[in-house]
Write a protein that binds this DNA or RNA. Structure first.
Length: 231
DNA sequence: GCGACAG
DNA sequence: ATCTTGTCGC
């Protein structure tokens, strides 16, 4: 929590950010039942075609328990490790969670942005803080997300008649530009293509890891057939 | 004090 | 986040 207060001033809220990024990255994490295993994924898409041009995944252990508001500490290590494995540097990070729409104005998107130095925004499926009016039903309509008298994000409708998403600035991006980028990433579904591709990737990686762990448990890390042999 | 609470 | 049955629609 002190770390968030310390890094918060480093968030760059000046420029509008890239208006036409060439590549956009999606980041997401999947958890196993017991909560002792996770898979983090980053997918980089061509901003124009939305095709995946690079990606990285990694499995590991949660670095922290889940505590609303301290969420970043849980996923950050695994996500940073995945980012390091990319062969390209994306022009924008689209995080699965909030940016400024956070109790201390320093959500996961801000944290990732400050640490990597890259423009970042947060796109969350549910609110964490703030109040808002329901945006109208058409895709593209939005309303301000306000908390403590200040605008911390937008409630954006990405599909006609579908539950809106919560968009907030993370680092080096304006709220206006963040909104435009999210709309560009949602030509068909409620969630950005970046989030969807990263979600699929980490889920698959987690399933593989769980299967591997299960197989290891069956053989007890010994040669197959060894334990069925009589002493 | 009580409830709410990104993933 | 994850679990989980049926349901509605392209």
């Amino acid at each position: 929590m002190a770390v968030q207060e310390e890094l918060r001033p480093l968030v760059d809220l000046a420029g509008p950010g890239p208006s036409a990024p060439a590549t956009v990255a999606g980041l997401d994490v999947a958890y196993a039942e017991g909560g002792d295993l996770l898979a983090a994924a980053v997918t980089v898409l061509d901003a124009r075609t939305l095709a995946v041009v690079d990606s990285a995944v990694g499995v590991g252990r949660p670095a922290f328990g889940y505590v609303p508001g301290l969420f970043a500490f849980r996923e950050l290590p695994a996500l940073l490790a995945a980012l390091d494995r990319l062969t390209t540097t994306p022009d924008l990070l689209v995080c699965d969670g909030h940016g400024l729409a956070h109790p201390r104005r320093f959500g996961l998107a801000c944290h990732l942005g400050v640490i990597t130095g890259l423009p970042a925004i947060g796109v969350a499926k549910t609110p964490l803080v703030g109040v808002w009016d329901q945006p109208s039903a058409e895709r593209g309509s939005w309303s301000s997300l306000r908390d403590g008298g200040e605008v911390v994000g937008r409630v954006l409708r990405t599909r006609d008649g579908v539950k809106p998403v919560f968009v907030s600035v993370g680092h080096r991006m304006s709220l206006e530009n963040a909104t435009a980028q999210v709309l560009a990433l949602t030509p068909r579904y409620r969630l950005p293509e970046t989030t969807r591709t990263a979600d699929r990737l980490c889920r698959d990686a987690l399933a593989e890891a769980e299967q591997a762990r299960w197989l290891a448990g069956q053989s007890g890390h010994q040669e197959v057939g060894r334990r069925s042999r009589k002493p």
